[in-house]
Amino acid sequence: MPALRILVLSVMLLLAVSVQASNNDTNRPVSREQAAAIAKQHYPGKIIKLQQQQQNYRIRVLQADGRVITVLVDGQTGRIKRDGQ
């Protein structure tokens, strides 16, 4: 069972990276779902709030230890512009 979990998580990460790379190639805006996947890739946890602010996404992530962090994802490139505790 743990091996299956690792495989599923690996596939999800690869998909998120490939989506991010394809967005950089075509310069299409990042969707809400893609922004959430990018945030979770860098900061695992539960997305509790996602707001679009101009060309960015402000995402609040509840981590396993109970901390809530804010991640700012660029809506054009998919890059994390800022993260905070």
Results as ranks from 00 to 15, higher is better:
G45N: 04
M1C: 12
L15G: 04
L14V: 13
A37R: 04
L62G: 08
D83Y: 10
Q76R: 05
G66D: 05
L14T: 08
V19I: 11
V30W: 00
P29G: 14
D74M: 02
Q63W: 06
N23A: 14
G78W: 01
Y57G: 03
R79L: 12
A39R: 00
Q52T: 03
S22G: 13
P44I: 04
N27T: 08
D74P: 02
G75T: 00
Y57C: 05
K49H: 09
L50V: 10
Q34F: 09
M12L: 14
A3V: 06
Q41W: 07
S10H: 08
L9E: 14
L72C: 05
V8W: 00
S22P: 10
Q51P: 00
P44K: 00
Q76Y: 06
I6Y: 00
T77W: 02
Q52H: 06
G84F: 06
P44E: 05
Q54D: 13
Q76D: 12
Q55W: 00
R67V: 09
Q55G: 05
V68D: 02
V8H: 05
M1L: 13
I69S: 05
M12S: 14
L14G: 13
T26N: 14
A35Q: 03
R67K: 12
Q55L: 07
T77G: 09
Q85H: 12
Q54A: 14
D25N: 15
G84R: 05
L7Q: 08
Q54V: 09
Q20L: 11
K46V: 15
R60C: 12
Q54K: 07
K81C: 12
I38M: 03
A37V: 05
T70M: 12
L62S: 10
Q54P: 00
S22Q: 13
M12E: 14
K49M: 10
A36W: 08
Q51L: 12
T26F: 15
Y43F: 14
D25Y: 15
Q20M: 11
L62H: 06
R5D: 10
R82C: 08
H42Q: 14
R82W: 13
A3K: 00
L15Q: 04
R28E: 13
Q76P: 04
V61Q: 02
L4N: 00
S18D: 07
V61I: 07
T70Q: 10
S10Y: 06
L14S: 12
S31D: 10
K46P: 13
D65A: 09
S10Q: 08
R28H: 14
A36C: 15
Q51W: 00
D25F: 15
I47P: 07
Q41P: 01
I59C: 03
R5H: 04
T70C: 10
V71Y: 02
Q55C: 04
A16N: 04
G66E: 04
T77P: 03
K49V: 05
G45V: 03
V11H: 04
I47F: 06
D74N: 10
I80Q: 02
A3W: 00
T77C: 08
A16Q: 01
Q63K: 11
S22W: 07
P44T: 06
V61H: 01
L13V: 06
Q76I: 09
A3P: 00
A16D: 04
I38E: 01
Q63E: 11
D83V: 12
R5V: 09
H42W: 11
I59F: 02
I59E: 01
V19A: 11
A64H: 10
R32G: 15
L4T: 00
